[in-house]
C-alpha cells in the first residue's frame, strides 16, 4: 500500500514513522554519506523541515514498515531550495502555492508491496501527482544528486533541469516536473500500478470509510440549475 500521511498523523503509525526515519538515516548517512545529515540518539534522521508539517508519500511493506518515501512541502513556506540552493534556479526564489518541493526521496533496495526497486520512484511520483492534482498544484521541484537523473530517465519521467552545481558530495541538480493528469496516468503505467487500488489517504480513507454528510434535505443543486 502507498500511503499519503500528514506529519501530524505519523503518531498513529509509529512503526511506519520510526522505520521511515531509520531508513532515511541508513540511506542518506550510512550509504550515501551526505555531510549535512544528522541523526538523533536513536539513529533516526529527522531534520528541521520535518517539523514544518510536511506530507509524506510512503510505500509500506507487508509488515507495515517503511520501504520508500518522499517528503512534500509547499514553496510558499520554508524550502531547502530557497534556503540552500537558490543559485540553481538563476537566483529565483521559487515561491507559489502552485509549486511543491519534493525532498528526502528514500528508496528501498528490495521489493515491497509488489513494487520493485526499479519501479518505486515512479510509484512514489504517481502517488504524489494524485495528491497534487487533488490540491490544484501544477509543479514539483526537487534538488537531487546528478546520478538520480539516470533513475528518472529509466522511469520515463526525467525532469527539466533548472540548474546544476558541484558540491563536496557530488554534482547536484534542480529538477522541475509539470503535473498533469496525463503525467499521472503515465506514471501509473510505468509503476505497474494502473488499475490497482494501491493508494490510501491516511487517515481519512482509513478511518472514516462512510463519511458523515450534511442532511440530504438541504441539498439544492445550484450547479445543476446553472447547467
Amino acid at each position: 500500500m502507498i500511503k499519503i500521511v500528514h506529519a501530524a498523523d505519523l503518531y498513529r503509525r509509529p512503526v511506519l514513522a520510526a522505520s521511515m526515519f531509520r531508513d532515511r538515516a541508513l540511506q542518506f548517512k550510512d550509504r550515501l554519506q551526505w555531510g549535512a545529515i544528522e541523526t538523533d540518539d536513536m539513529g533516526l534522521e529527522f531534520d528541521q523541515y520535518d517539523e514544518l508539517n510536511p506530507i509524506y508519500v510512503i510505500i509500506e511493506d507487508e509488515n507495515g514498515q517503511h520501504a520508500c518515501s518522499a517528503r512534500l512541502l509547499p514553496t510558499t513556506g520554508r524550502t531547502m531550495l530557497r534556503e540552500h540552493f537558490s543559485d540553481l534556479t538563476g537566483g529565483v526564489d521559487i515561491s507559489s502555492p502552485l509549486i511543491w518541493e519534493v525532498t528526502r526521496l528514500c528508496l528501498a533496495p528490495k521489493e515491497a508491496d509488489g513494487i520493485s526497486p526499479r519501479r518505486a520512484p515512479a510509484a512514489l511520483f504517481w502517488a504524489g501527482c494524485d495528491l497534487a492534482l487533488r490540491s490544484g498544484v501544477e509543479f514539483f521541484v526537487a534538488v537531487y544528486f546528478s546520478h538520480m537523473q539516470r533513475v528518472w530517465k529509466m522511469g520515463g519521467f526525467a525532469p527539466e533541469v533548472l540548474g546544476t552545481r558541484d558540491t563536496p558530495d557530488g554534482e547536484i541538480c534542480c529538477g522541475l516536473w509539470e503535473i498533469t493528469p496525463a503525467f499521472r496516468d503515465m506514471l501509473a503505467e510505468r509503476s505497474g500500478l494502473a488499475g490497482r487500488n494501491a493508494l490510501q489517504y491516511f487517515p481519512s480513507e482509513a478511518r472514516f470509510p462512510a463519511a458523515p454528510r450534511f442532511p440530504a434535505d438541504v441539498t439544492v443543486s445550484r450547479l445543476a440549475t446553472a447547467a
Binding site: 500528514h6 506529519a7 501530524a8 498523523d9 508539517n53 506530507i55 512541502l73 509547499p74 513556506g77 495528491l131 487533488r134 490540491s135 490544484g136 489517504y201 481519512s204 480513507e205 478511518r207 472514516f208 463519511a211 458523515p212 454528510r213
Partner: peptide, 14 residues
C-alpha cells in the same frame, strides 16, 4: 491546522 493540503469537507470527522 494539521496540513497544507486543501480539504474536502467530506473527508472530515463530523
Amino acid at each position: 491546522i494539521r496540513s497544507f493540503m486543501p480539504i474536502d469537507w467530506k473527508n472530515l470527522d463530523w
